[in-house]
Design a protein around this nucleic acid. Structure first.
Length: 956
DNA sequence: CTAGTCACTTAGAAGGTGGATC
DNA sequence: GATCCACCTTCTAAGTGACTAG
């Protein structure tokens, strides 16, 4: 609002003045105003014969190794024995072992005496929250909360009770939670005292991380790592055990999923450790953990964090914008809706959502459970209502004054937005290098040459082996060449001269001195500076992708039918700009041209979009950077939703287990699909068009993708997102196995396995089980809970390096669960052999030292070295030291080698960026005095500022 | 109910950078 | 100083899922 009147020039000045580009976060908005927040060239085609072949093998060639991995056996999380039990009542025992719950509601104190943070028992907080209810909570719409807080007896499962950790945090938190927070708090209290509804029964592994479940509970006979002692073993860490079970093929080809999943047998008790640990008094734990970290190391890290002390890190939770989506933790409730639904379903037990079913067997003492069920229903049915709200807002928004607070209307994400638009790639500069056609140089217009160059620079990529790519390219190029052009056939083209020119250019660039490079960088930065930042509600925020995508050839992944097509140059007239109503319209950077359209839509976060030239019905958006508060807020909401799932997971598992044998085939398919999504972290699997690569997710699995192998193993083999192969053999419960067999009956290989199912049906069902639940939440949940569990089970003191290794190990586990792969680097094998050589060399030295030592002990001089020169006469002590040093060196190199080999196909970054609740990491770092910079790089620190002030006791 | 639209998150590859090692 | 290599950043493709129109 302030900035609104400032308008562009002023804003930009402000940006410039602020010079501290490394510290953009100090601009972060603070709605409270109280704080400054924060070649294989295809020969026939090109006549060039470059190195043939980048490994394409990894992906689609189907050579991967295989393994049996078992999702779990009967002792797994969802024991068959549970099947048919109406609910869990008898299992709703002491919840004292339920870590998260026991934590929730506990006034979590740091040894530094940060004031209490638990929402529960914090009347001030409730009061504040009530006062702040004008500030819209992303978690609950005001309407809904009004109704729920007043009339409805229905209460909510507590979504976020652990969220805030400081007094300010509490306030922010409260404001977010809206007026329902008081109720929530009460409710949570009752949960805490009465016990957690879903319970943590002794025989339940429901709260165990996926990895633990995946690898746990198999009969001993199945173990392939029997050496694991119960006390040292980590049921969820098959990785340590080199789980390759069936490795017929080259290791390189083995997909992660199968590579690391193993049969294992972790006794049920092994997994409980952290839960018990969690039941220690928090204060005690904190003392043990040495919370001083926060002040020392973390202050240091806050320097990295754009100079903001941790305590001041912007908590996005108080941003004023709201989420229009209801699913995201908003829990609007009306009693009416509940009763309607309850009546309708009362006589059909099988169709009662799990949360509802849970209610029945519960003793009157277990209030919280009933609460949760109702909430669930209500929320799901209130979705429609909320969507109406959004629509209304959308319609009315333009007529409203832009002074309207973001918090005062549904779905608004900002009030003022000022930016400079986007930057375009420079126009094409012809190089004049002539390609050959039938051996003769050809003259091309700049436009023709541009496209030829796009192709030429890709001569050393794998696309040259793809007929689709070449065909698509030629079709589009031909349009530019014209019908009667001399160039008619791609086979007769020789792009080598252009390719070589390009290589020379690259080399030139490489050879530039670092000063030249730096100057160039600075020049570029200067040009781009003004596009890099926006002012969003008066706060300077970084833009993510302010550069318009340059023209090129479409590089679809896998067997994309459109690969090689020309991605035409985007012009201003293709671009729609979204900007605050009162903000100056960005100047069009290309003289004589103008934007396609200017919008002022504050219900969306994009700054600009254009239609994707390859698929015109799709859009390319310009968004804020990951470090922006807008992104941070939704990130946080994502993790809060995943944490909420923790409270529901057992009920959900019980429900789908029951439905494995449901008479209704749709329900059966939903049950099995949910099971696979939960157990194997599969993606939902939306329908895809014919003009996209043929990949699948859970709902779109084909019969041929899942092969049942009696007695109860399922062999998965399909291409998932980005055409990454998923290959896994999994032991499943018999009912699942039988259901899969049934679903396959009478179908052909290419038919849908789940023919009654699609993602919208599945998600609609999931929403009945938990507010806002969708298939993707399971991935987040399973990834984060796995990290949390592994970190807490496996961190056992040791030095910093060892702790970091523990983290990487857990990270790797998650990456495997999520099937995050990378291609093996071209130089991998060379690197390995170099390592081997070095190790051999060191071993040779070691032998010499040993010989010398033996001689020295007898008073003899050392033998001559391998080079024939005499060696220094060392005393036995010195030689022993040398031996120890060399041995240590060898050991380290062996470890490095192993790690390298182990991780060559595993991409650790993706899960860190997208799936692991950063608060788990931050809290763990605080507890174990690991500088956060050891785990998060600069980008991640910026992205996760919202997570930095978490209490050390935080558990997912 | 379905197909289509839109907005946003998740993903691996390519390219760049800078420190370690030779 | 050159080379190697790990790590980081950038790029943009490819997902998910909410919502709407018919």
């Amino acid at each position: 609002m302030a900035v609104q009147t400032c308008a562009k020039p002023k804003m930009m000045n402000a940006f410039d003045d602020d010079d501290d580009d490394d510290a953009p976060l100090i601009f972060k908005r603070s709605n409270t105003g109280s704080k400054q927040n924060q070649l294989n060239l295809e020969k026939n085609n090109t006549k060039l014969n470059l190195e043939k072949n980048k490994s394409s093998s990894q992906r689609h060639d189907g050579q991967s190794g295989k393994q049996v991995s078992e999702v779990r056996s009967s002792s797994g999380h969802n024991p068959v024995s549970q099947k048919g039990k109406p609910v869990v009542s008898s299992e709703v025992r002491s919840h004292s072992s339920q870590n998260s719950i026991s934590q929730k509601g506990k006034p979590v104190m740091s040894s530094k005496a940060s004031p209490v943070k638990s929402p529960i028992g914090s009347p001030q907080a409730s009061t504040s929250s009530a006062k702040l209810s004008a500030v819209k909570s992303p978690l609950a719409s005001p309407k809904a909360s009004t109704s729920s807080s007043k009339a409805s007896p229905v209460k909510l499962p507590v979504p976020n009770s652990k969220m805030s950790t400081s007094a300010t945090g509490q306030l922010k938190h409260s404001s977010q939670q809206n007026t329902t927070s008081a109720i929530i708090k009460e409710e949570k209290q009752s949960i805490n005292s009465a016990g957690e509804p879903h319970c943590d029964s002794d025989d339940s592994e429901d709260d165990k991380p996926l990895s633990a479940r995946l690898f746990a509970g198999l009969p001993k006979g199945n173990l392939n790592h029997a050496n694991k002692g119960p006390s040292t073993s980590s049921p969820g860490s098959p990785l340590l055990q080199k789980p390759r079970v069936k490795t017929e093929d080259s290791d390189d080809e083995i997909p992660l999923s199968s590579k690391f999943q193993v049969k294992s047998n972790a006794g049920p008790s092994t997994n409980k450790s952290h839960e018990f640990d969690d039941n220690k008094p928090m204060a005690l734990k904190l003392q043990q953990n040495g919370y001083t970290m926060k002040d020392n190391q973390l202050k240091k890290s806050s320097t990295v964090l754009n100079k903001r002390p941790l305590g001041e890190v912007k908590s996005s939770s108080h941003s004023s914008f709201k989420k229009p989506k209801i699913g995201d933790g908003s829990l609007p409730i009306t009693g009416k809706q509940v009763s309607v639904k309850a009546e309708k379903e009362a006589d059909d037990y099988d169709h009662v959502p799990i949360s509802e079913r849970l209610k029945k067997p519960i003793s009157s003492g277990n209030k919280s459970l009933a609460t949760k069920q109702k909430a669930t229903k209500v929320v799901s049915s209130s979705f429609k209502k909320s969507s109406k709200n959004k629509k209304q807002v959308k319609k009315s928004m333009y007529s409203k004054s832009s002074k309207m607070l973001p918090s005062s209307g549904e779905g608004q994400k900002w009030t003022t937005l000022v930016h400079n638009g986007v930057i375009f790639p420079p126009p094409y500069k012809p190089h004049g290098v002539k390609m050959l056609y039938k051996g003769k140089p050809v003259d091309l217009t700049p436009e023709q040459e541009e496209v030829a160059t796009m192709y030429a620079v890709m001569l050393d990529t794998d696309y040259m082996n793809k007929p689709t790519f070449k065909e698509n390219f030629m079709n589009d190029w031909r349009k530019i060449l014209g019908k009667n052009h001399v160039i008619q056939r791609l086979e007769d083209c020789n792009f080598t001269p252009i390719y070589e020119w390009h290589q020379r250019e690259k080399e030139k660039k490489k050879q530039m001195s670092s000063e030249e490079k730096k100057a160039l960088r600075e020049e570029k930065l200067k040009q781009e500076e003004k596009y890099m930042w926006v002012s969003l509600d008066g706060v300077k925020e970084k833009v993510g992708n302010f550069r318009v995508e340059p023209p090129g050839l479409f590089r679809g992944r896998g067997e994309h039918p459109k690969m090689g097509k020309l991605k035409k140059r985007i012009r201003p007239s293709d671009i729609t700009i979204n900007i605050g109503k009162d903000a100056p319209i960005p100047e069009c950077p290309i003289a004589g041209e103008s934007w396609k359209e200017i919008r002022h839509d504050n219900t969306v976060t994009w700054l600009a979009f254009w239609n994707d030239p390859i698929n015109p019905k799709e859009f390319k958006y310009v968004f804020l950077a990951a470090s922006s508060s807008l992104k941070g807020q939704s990130d946080k909401e994502k993790y809060e939703k995943a944490r909420l799932l923790k409270d529901y997971i057992q009920g959900i598992r019980t429900a789908y287990t029951k439905d494995f044998t449901n008479k209704d085939i749709t329900r059966r398919q939903i049950a099995v699909a949910t099971y696979l999504i939960d157990k194997l972290a599969l993606r939902a699997g939306n329908e895809k068009d014919d003009d996209e690569a043929d990949t699948v997710g859970c709902c779109t699995l084909k019969v041929e993708n899942v092969e049942p192998v009696p007695p109860n193993i399922l062999k998965f083999d399909f291409l998932g997102k980005d055409s990454i192969r998923y290959q896994n053999e999994v032991e499943v419960e018999l009912p699942v196995f039988r259901a899969i067999q049934q679903f396959r009956t009478g179908k052909k290989g290419g038919d849908d396995l789940f023919d009654k199912l699609d993602t919208s049906k599945l998600n609609a069902h999931l929403k009945e089980l938990m507010p806002g639940l969708t298939a993707k939440v399971f991935r987040t949940y399973n990834a984060s809970i796995t990290l949390d569990d592994m970190l807490n089970r496996e961190t056992k003191g040791g030095d910093l390096a060892e702790k970091v290794v523990v983290y990487q190990h857990a990270n790797k586990e998650v990456a495997i669960i999520c099937n995050h792969q990378r291609t093996v680097s071209k130089s991998h094998s060379a690197q390995m052999s170099r390592l081997n050589e070095k190790i051999d060399e060191l071993k040779g030295m070691l032998d010499e030292f040993k010989t010398d030592l033996a001689r020295a002990k007898k008073g003899k001089p050392p033998l001559k070295g391998a080079d024939g020169k005499p060696k220094k006469n060392l005393n036995p002590e010195a030689l022993e030291r040398k031996i120890a040093q060399t041995t240590a060196k060898i050991e380290k190199m062996e470890r490095d080698k192993e790690t390298k080999e182990d991780l060559k196909t595993v991409a650790l970054g993706t899960s860190k960026i997208n799936y692991l609740d950063p608060r788990i990491t931050v809290a763990w770092c605080k507890r174990h005095e690991v500088p956060i910079e050891k785990i998060f790089n600069k980008s991640l620190l910026a992205k996760f500022t919202w997570a930095m002030d978490v209490e050390p006791s935080y558990r997912f």
